[in-house]
Amino acid sequence: MKKEWPLWEVFVRSKNGLEHRHFGSLHAADADMALVNARDVYTRRSEGVSIWVVESKHIKASNPEHNGELFEPAQDKVYRHPTFYDLPDEIKHM
Protein backbone atom coordinates (compact mmCIF):
# COMPACT_ATOMS: atom_id res chain seq x y z
CA MET A 1 0.00 0.00 0.00
CA LYS A 2 2.72 2.46 1.12
CA LYS A 3 0.60 5.58 1.39
CA GLU A 4 2.17 8.35 3.41
CA TRP A 5 0.25 9.83 6.32
CA PRO A 6 -0.98 13.22 5.09
CA LEU A 7 0.48 16.49 6.27
CA TRP A 8 -1.41 18.70 8.76
CA GLU A 9 -0.89 22.31 9.75
CA VAL A 10 -0.97 23.04 13.46
CA PHE A 11 -2.29 26.25 15.01
CA VAL A 12 -1.86 26.86 18.72
CA ARG A 13 -3.37 29.45 21.06
CA SER A 14 -0.64 30.15 23.62
CA LYS A 15 -3.05 31.56 26.16
CA ASN A 16 -6.59 32.80 26.29
CA GLY A 17 -6.86 36.25 24.84
CA LEU A 18 -4.41 35.51 22.05
CA GLU A 19 -5.20 34.23 18.58
CA HIS A 20 -4.22 30.80 17.27
CA ARG A 21 -0.88 31.06 15.56
CA HIS A 22 0.70 28.73 13.00
CA PHE A 23 3.20 26.57 14.87
CA GLY A 24 4.29 24.11 12.22
CA SER A 25 3.16 20.90 10.65
CA LEU A 26 3.18 17.16 11.20
CA HIS A 27 1.97 13.89 9.74
CA ALA A 28 -1.07 11.97 10.95
CA ALA A 29 -3.46 9.43 9.48
CA ASP A 30 -6.61 11.17 10.73
CA ALA A 31 -7.81 14.30 12.50
CA ASP A 32 -7.88 12.75 15.98
CA MET A 33 -4.34 11.54 15.57
CA ALA A 34 -3.27 14.92 14.23
CA LEU A 35 -4.67 16.59 17.34
CA VAL A 36 -2.92 14.31 19.84
CA ASN A 37 0.29 14.40 17.83
CA ALA A 38 0.15 18.18 17.82
CA ARG A 39 -0.25 18.15 21.57
CA ASP A 40 2.81 15.91 21.97
CA VAL A 41 4.96 17.62 19.36
CA TYR A 42 4.16 21.29 19.86
CA THR A 43 3.01 21.77 23.46
CA ARG A 44 5.51 19.73 25.51
CA ARG A 45 6.60 22.86 27.36
CA SER A 46 3.15 24.30 28.12
CA GLU A 47 3.11 26.34 24.93
CA GLY A 48 -0.63 26.13 24.41
CA VAL A 49 -4.20 26.07 25.71
CA SER A 50 -5.97 25.28 22.45
CA ILE A 51 -5.02 23.52 19.22
CA TRP A 52 -6.44 23.59 15.70
CA VAL A 53 -5.30 21.15 13.05
CA VAL A 54 -6.19 21.27 9.38
CA GLU A 55 -5.04 18.99 6.63
CA SER A 56 -2.54 20.96 4.56
CA LYS A 57 -4.23 20.11 1.28
CA HIS A 58 -7.32 22.07 2.37
CA ILE A 59 -5.39 25.33 2.58
CA LYS A 60 -5.70 27.51 -0.48
CA ALA A 61 -2.74 29.84 -0.61
CA SER A 62 -2.31 32.97 -2.69
CA ASN A 63 0.35 32.84 -5.36
CA PRO A 64 3.35 35.16 -4.87
CA GLU A 65 3.28 35.80 -8.62
CA HIS A 66 0.02 37.64 -8.07
CA ASN A 67 1.40 39.74 -5.23
CA GLY A 68 1.40 42.78 -7.51
CA GLU A 69 -2.32 42.75 -8.20
CA LEU A 70 -3.23 41.46 -4.74
CA PHE A 71 -1.22 43.70 -2.44
CA GLU A 72 0.31 46.63 -4.27
CA PRO A 73 -2.96 48.47 -4.97
CA ALA A 74 -3.29 48.99 -1.20
CA GLN A 75 0.01 50.83 -1.02
CA ASP A 76 -1.21 54.18 -2.38
CA LYS A 77 -4.42 54.26 -0.36
CA VAL A 78 -2.76 56.35 2.29
CA TYR A 79 -6.10 57.88 3.31
CA ARG A 80 -6.81 54.62 5.17
CA HIS A 81 -4.13 55.52 7.72
CA PRO A 82 -4.56 58.04 10.56
CA THR A 83 -1.35 59.90 9.68
CA PHE A 84 -3.01 61.04 6.43
CA TYR A 85 -5.07 63.59 8.34
CA ASP A 86 -3.65 66.87 9.60
CA LEU A 87 -4.79 67.99 13.00
CA PRO A 88 -3.87 71.10 15.04
CA ASP A 89 -0.86 70.50 17.32
CA GLU A 90 -3.03 71.27 20.36
CA ILE A 91 -4.80 67.95 19.87
CA LYS A 92 -2.43 65.55 21.57
CA HIS A 93 -4.31 62.28 21.36
CA MET A 94 -6.75 61.28 18.67
Partner: peptide, 11 residues
Protein backbone atom coordinates in the same frame (compact mmCIF):
# COMPACT_ATOMS: atom_id res chain seq x y z
CA UNK B 1 6.64 3.43 13.65
CA UNK B 2 6.63 7.18 12.97
CA UNK B 3 8.29 10.18 14.56
CA UNK B 4 4.96 11.41 15.89
CA UNK B 5 4.15 8.06 17.49
CA UNK B 6 7.65 7.85 18.94
CA UNK B 7 7.21 11.21 20.63
CA UNK B 8 3.79 10.19 21.98
CA UNK B 9 5.05 6.92 23.51
CA UNK B 10 7.96 8.74 25.12
CA UNK B 11 5.52 11.22 26.62
Amino acid sequence: PSLETDIACTN
